[in-house]
Design a binder for these strands. Structure first.
Lengths: 235, 235
DNA sequence: CGGCTCCTTGACTTAAGTCAACGCACGTGG
DNA sequence: CCACGTGCGTTGACTTAAGTCAAGGAGCCG
């Protein structure tokens, strides 16, 4: 998994070995666990190899805004000691397999030029994704938002080999989707129903299928450019 | 101005000289000008020394989402050649004084350790701000959103000496505010009116005064931590 | 003095939120 | 192995925040 991620963002040599080590020290974490809390001192990195995690913030009234998904292959790097307090929390949405990378090994990884470059690319893509999500919440209707999110997930999961054709497992609740898209779980439910009725998606259990991807892409005005490593490798 | 920005994020020596040079090659740009367009090849940096600019994205139907403000002292650094296409546009909201920094000089600046560190800090703060805005749009009411935005602007403008007491010049339209907060200009107008009626803010022309900052902060649940260099210098 | 663009306001519509109930699946413990 | 609890999904009836449409006014510039 980790391999995949690094694989596309930059060419690797035997850095793969370094990553393999990481995968060794992996732990299984139940859903709803905070891996890092707001206000913590950032250190090292965290990598997800299975399941969905997220970055989120809370309001005093309990309202939650999810600002990013961490899916298998994703790494979040806390540029150690540049900022000394984290402004958000990272928690699991489903059961996850997580690798924690200490500050020392983190430094080692960043020493390898190819990996360092990969990590910076990841950071830039994450930021671009943040902007796209903002557009999503601010300027798209409920149905469009969900359509867009599903398209994004398909692309990202494909990149790590976790989608087969146009379908993938989405191990998170509609409440999570609501907190991602800035809506209510009730309205997420209805909007998903609308997409289903329109024949754009299908769901059985945790499995989602984007039956009519072209129409979905058009509806959401989805352009994958912001996620694009492709542009990278082409360069 | 530039000095200020760097001043807080990291201690400087004679890097100031390097920055001074930048300020020399500065141009005046009218409002509504795009400095960099989506799809461009990123190169060098752009610094704003006067006026308000922003990052934004457009939808096919013309809807605009502003994802960040660039105020005097802000620099945006396109990590040259890491990504090769920009996913958003940068344009001026008011008349601006802008410094364009070529790729070569950009590299030079990044060579100076203190400046490099400063730039990375800026990038991290920008990202944190992005997350806070997302929370703003996704999970706060119209009035709260505006209150939060105003608080943020006060803090940021203070940091560069552009606020006197609790008031500052806001040289942008209510349409811009709407595109920032994911609402309509009409509703921005009404919500601002509400803040004014509640005695929280005052406006005359472009000048905004946050009369009752404590209540405004409370209403918006504003915590400046995400902008905090203070934390940095303390470290 | 037009002719912009922006601000302001009112009347009305609509998308999304709220409240509430019920069913279903899952997991745990008796 | 079944009984029960709990969290999630689903649906309906109703409320509300925000959007839409539209028109007038204010400021600014050439």
């Amino acid at each position: 998994m980790l391999r995949k991620l690094q694989g596309f963002s930059k060419l690797e040599e035997a850095d793969a070995a370094a990553l393999a080590i990481i995968e060794a020290g992996t732990r299984l974490v139940p859903a709803g666990t905070d891996l890092i809390s707001e206000g913590d001192r950032p250190e090292g990195m965290i990598a997800i190899t299975e399941g969905f995690a997220c970055r989120y913030k809370l309001r005093a009234n309990g309202a939650r805004q999810i600002t990013a998904y961490l899916i298998p292959g994703d790494i979040c790097d806390f540029e150690t000691s540049i900022l000394n307090r984290i402004d958000h929390t990272i928690g699991t949405l489903s059961t996850c397999r997580v690798a924690r990378i200490g500050p020392e090994t983190g430094r080692e990884l960043r020493q390898r030029p190819a990996l360092a470059r990969g990590l910076r690319t990841v950071a830039l893509v994450d930021e671009a994704t943040l902007r796209e999500w903002m557009m999503n919440i601010g300027r798209r209707s409920a149905v469009e938002r969900l359509a867009h999110l599903l398209c994004e997930l398909l692309v990202r999961l494909r990149a790590v080999g976790l989608a087969s054709g146009n379908s993938f497992d989405l191990p998170i609740t509609q409440i999570d989707l609501a907190d991602t898209t800035g809506m209510t779980s009730v309205h997420v439910n209805r909007s998903l129903g609308e997409l289903k009725r329109a024949g754009l998606i299908e769901r059985k259990g945790k499995r989602v299928t984007l039956c009519d991807l072209p129409r979905l892409v058009e509806l959401a005005e989805f352009r994958s450019n912001y996620l694009n490593w492709e542009a990278q490798t082409a360069a």
